[in-house]
Design a protein around this nucleic acid. Structure first.
Lengths: 420, 420
DNA sequence: TTAGTTTGTTGGATCAACAGACAAAGTCGG
DNA sequence: CCGACTTTGTCTGTTGATCCAACAAACTAA
């Protein structure tokens, strides 16, 4: 009922005038077409409650801004004059996402429809590189995507960069990225200067947060019923968590939410990177799986090889029914469920999304995981929570970054194109 | 930037017309006065960005509806014509909250300013009573509060009832309340029929959720900097959790969020009510403290005595420096911190609020709790999270219930009073 | 061919915010 | 005490976005 700013959390409404009203309704129409697909003006009016004449005017402006376009005639309704379908115009605007991770750099560009315009991932041993050198190479990669969008004739909605670490909410300052071996560093500022102080918005966010957002956008397209509450778990050496609650990314007071890897749920065992024992990571992280499933000199343990290849090795053994591999996977799945049940009890998500290596090995993890959750979640029927594998693989964070840049356009379409 | 409905989660905007615009700005002005205190029309205009003339018109309507009133002259500004202060009118509207708990029934009525109009708590051994009988007595109590508000000349904004159990989001159906010994039961429907199918909105919610909301409203008044992310822990026989994230109550997909009592963090020991061992409740619940601090025949263990009196006994011993009591409190405080750190790592709240018995014994719990959190939260400086005791005691949930009813008025002031 | 249905546009009405002018009510300096 | 100055709150007219009702256009069905 109230105009929300979106930038100031908790502020449920800001003063509004005719311009805000128009902006709001432009956003409503644009998101309506995104979420429910192409449809005629008359149908949009009917479904949103706006007047037919108003919808015509709004659509005209959105077309002028290059966000919508008229498509073919609507032949679905039997009687009367057929309407002209109005649909998202993918050619106009793109969002770009980037990611720095332990062993690769990546970028992705999505158009307004969510389709992948370009995507690139280069293996880089970030942990053993100077941060400045990494940022140089990362800036080159991001610039490549930006120019790629521009030569294609698209307008750039914004760039959002993912980092596997603690990112302070407002400033986008990186506080700590243990897996990269990075300390406090203003990634946003460093990248802005390397990209020549660009005019488009550039933000930095936590990798799991953006992956969760990508999963949210993905579920919006694939699921019948709307999903507004989800938890995403990214499995790597560490374990990251991203939470979408009530359709909004949960960031916490300072942006440090989603640190799930160090829940003390396991019996004392291997020492965690944080210095303690018993952390969840130590029983569900990739290292834990490899230690259980393989011997010391096994090639799949070789950190210099590509992660996806090593995982393919595990998959092959599991498919062949190798006992030790299957037992290790069942073990990890159960521990995943024990920690997952904590999250489900606290957050009651509709969906628990497995990302990173959990997604790859999902077929073997899912059953013991779901069993553990059913047993340990207090709410009836596991609180109605389903477990799904992410379809996005290791591209989740970059896609989420591109998506969050595009989201700004859906919230305020007047950011793009010329005024009337 | 978009008009939010508030009822549909995730829907970031609904179609808006002139009426919505007006409603939005009425809400903005009303909340502005609530949050920042009495001030002149000119100042409201300056601070909200609305036009002076518009603010005059909005204030006039809000006065007509009995939500605002003109107060004394503003003598704070030195120069020029002094303004007339505009302030919340407490006499017009009230919200009512009720609570069913293990050993008492309670109601509270708050006026628009948040001041307590009436409050009542009666000891009832709910667990050993037929649900129907309990609901009969509860309905009498709620009706008493409702008529209390009405004879005072106030309009009733709504009634919200707290239950210590799992409440399904939309329907307000109680799924499970183990501490009451209640199973599935539509409390909302039962109460509506007992209250004669009232016209005012009546809702049912989880007790910890409402307590968290009360703490949120309380911090809004007492803190200088706005707090939009908090976690509230209610200590009783069990442990409940309520989460406010980004200024919104976190409910989860089906309303089952906040089940923190059964996190498996403790070593195997006493069997929990849920049938497992190692649950957080078993080391921080009231029973755990009593077992550590006292012998079997100690009178403070007697469940037939009032909880507050028994806690007063513990407080006395702690103040006297009794070693066993102090040691038990330190133990509970540390365990509270171990589980609390999980919540802080996941949710990154600005404030961790201690409610229920944790608030009463807070002075002894706080130090070991904060130490454990500092040690175990990954984000620097504990993620900026402070630990505070709730000032509301066992009235938190009823106050929160009344508050959430009033919140509807702040979101849509046109619900109250006559149209222009 | 005609009646009926649906689409999308047009012109006028309505409503709320805005802008600027102005009287009212105070302070300050002489 | 008086005039210059400042600030408040109201009033009048303008702007702009949505709504409403009428209508031409386009198609189906009989």
């Amino acid at each position: 009922m109230t105009l929300t700013d979106g930038r100031r959390p908790g502020s449920r409404g800001v003063a509004a005038d005719h311009v805000s009203l128009r902006r709001n309704n432009l956003s409503v129409v644009l998101r309506h077409v995104r979420d429910l697909g192409p449809r005629s003006r008359a149908r949009i009016a009917e479904e949103t409650g706006l007047n037919k004449a108003t919808v015509s005017s709004l659509v005209a402006e959105l077309v002028e801004r290059g966000l919508l376009r008229e498509g073919s005639a609507d032949s679905s309704r039997a009687l009367g004059r057929p309407g002209l379908l109005v649909e998202l115009d993918g050619t106009g605007v793109c969002g770009v996402g980037g990611e720095i991770n332990v062993d690769y750099l990546a970028v992705s560009a999505l158009d307004l429809t969510g389709a992948v315009v370009l995507e690139k991932r280069v293996p880089v041993d970030v942990a053993h590189l100077d941060p400045a050198t990494t940022l140089d190479r990362f800036a080159d990669l991001v610039q490549e995507a930006v120019t790629g969008v521009e030569v294609r004739g698209g307008q750039l909605a914004g760039v959002t960069l993912a980092v596997p670490g603690l990112v302070q909410g407002e400033t986008g300052k990186l506080k700590l990225a243990p897996n990269l071996g990075w300390g406090e560093l203003s990634v946003a500022q460093e990248m802005r200067s390397r990209l020549g102080e660009p005019t488009y918005p550039l933000h930095v966010d936590n990798e799991a947060n953006l992956a969760a957002l990508a999963a949210y956008a993905d579920l919006r397209q694939t699921e019948d019923e709307p999903v507004h509450d989800l938890v995403l778990l990214t499995g790597a050496v560490g374990v990251g968590g991203g939470v979408v609650a009530g359709g909004q990314l949960l960031r916490g007071g300072h942006g440090y939410s989603g640190e799930v890897g160090h829940m003390p749920v396991a019996p004392p065992g291997r020492t965690c990177g944080c210095g303690r024992t018993g952390c969840w990571e130590t029983v569900v992280g990739l290292t834990a799986l490899l230690h259980k499933a393989t011997d010391r000199d096994d090639p799949v343990r070789d950190p210099s090889l590509d992660v996806e290849q090593r995982l393919a090795g595990i998959t092959r053994r599991a498919e062949a029914g190798e006992a030790r591999t299957l037992s290790a996977l069942k073990d990890v799945g159960t521990w995943l469920g024990i920690g997952g049940a904590i999250l489900v009890n606290i957050l009651n998500p509709d969906v628990l999304v497995l990302g990173g290596y959990f997604a790859v090995l999902g077929p073997w993890l899912k059953e013991p995981l779901e069993k553990a959750i059913r047993e340990r979640v207090i709410a009836p029927d596991g609180g109605g929570c389903r477990v799904v594998r992410s379809e996005l693989g290791f591209a989740a964070a970059v896609r989420g970054g591109a998506q969050i840049s595009l989201d700004q356009v859906f919230v305020d379409p007047t950011r793009i194109g010329v005024a009337r």
